[in-house]
């Protein structure tokens, strides 16, 4: 449902409506990657998604992005059914999705270029975004000259240059070292607050999910489904602040332990099942 915000701008609402996804395997079997997933994501919400690997997180994201059609259900953005990829829904991948034959600036202006926006028109926006992600001095650099953290900054800027309604991130910080990762988490929070974008962020790290997710979704495997949902205060607290301070919040440690325990049990169960069948 699209609705008007207080300021009167049209904003987006993402509706994941009873999605199921079944992969048929070549050997005649099948995998139920997702079963009856329903989510209503409000405009400007930052939702982090956690779950043991194989629980369908990437599949869900690919369906929202429009790369896969679900076997059941539908995705609606602003009341329109999603049928394919569109610049409305930007993607940030883990790594290696930048175009290494282009320099930093050309990567960032890729979206506007594709739409036929002239360089003169997009210049200001591109320069601004490069500044926001702290790469104003690296415009002319080749992608392979940048560190992993800088490459992900380019990926963020490239996605924002298209001004998407929703940003989908599949473990965007997964390949970074712990320190770089912390800095990037702050950047993601700041960008979220500044731009007011709706963000779905998949992560492997419970801490990251807690710190960044205004809403936190824990998924369970076989079949992939929503296991539990949290509403958390940490993302709002973290905007513009030291994330290490946020971790001292009284509820932080408890929630973390609870979620760890939950995922731990799921993994145990998976192990047990595979041992039984073996």
């Amino acid at each position: 449902m699209s609705h008007l915000s207080e300021k009167g701008i049209q904003v987006s609402e993402l509706l994941i409506d009873n999605i199921s996804m079944r992969f048929d395997l070549p050997d005649g079997g099948h995998v139920q990657a997702l079963k009856n997933v329903t989510l209503d994501i409000k405009s400007g919400e930052l939702m982090s998604v956690l779950g043991p690997s194989g629980c369908g997180k990437t599949t869900l994201l690919n369906i929202v992005a429009g790369f896969l059609a679900p076997t059941e259900g539908q995705i609606k953005l602003n009341n329109e059914v999603v049928t394919g990829p569109s610049p409305q829904r930007g993607m940030v991948f883990q790594q290696g999705a930048l175009f290494e034959w282009m320099n930093v600036r050309d990567n960032v202006s890729f979206g506007p270029d594709m739409k036929g926006v002239s360089r003169a028109e997009s210049k200001e926006k591109v320069e601004h975004l490069l500044e926001v992600v702290g790469l104003q001095d690296f415009k002319e650099k080749a992608i392979y000259e940048l560190s992993g953290g800088m490459q992900q900054r380019v990926a963020l800027a490239r996605c924002l240059a298209n001004d998407p309604d929703v940003i989908l991130m599949d473990e965007p910080l997964g390949a970074l070292d712990a320190l770089t990762r912390e800095k990037m988490q702050s950047l993601v929070l700041d960008l979220w607050k500044d731009t007011g974008k709706t963000i779905i962020l998949i992560t492997h790290s419970v801490e990251e999910a807690l710190l960044l997710g205004e809403r936190l979704l824990v998924m369970a495997p076989r079949p992939g489904r929503v296991h539990k949902e949290y509403r958390l205060p940490f993302a709002d607290l973290g905007v513009g602040n030291d994330l290490r301070e946020v971790k001292k919040h009284k509820d932080y440690a408890g929630t973390r332990e609870e979620i760890l325990e939950m995922i731990w049990n799921m993994e145990e169960e998976i192990m047990g099942r595979t041992e039984e069948s073996a």
Partner: peptide, 17 residues
């Protein structure tokens, strides 16, 4: 890499692009 192709599609690229 399929992620490059997907990235380009979701940045608005046409098949020709």
């Amino acid at each position: 890499a399929i992620s490059k192709v997907h990235a380009a599609y979701s940045l608005g690229a046409s098949k020709w692009q």
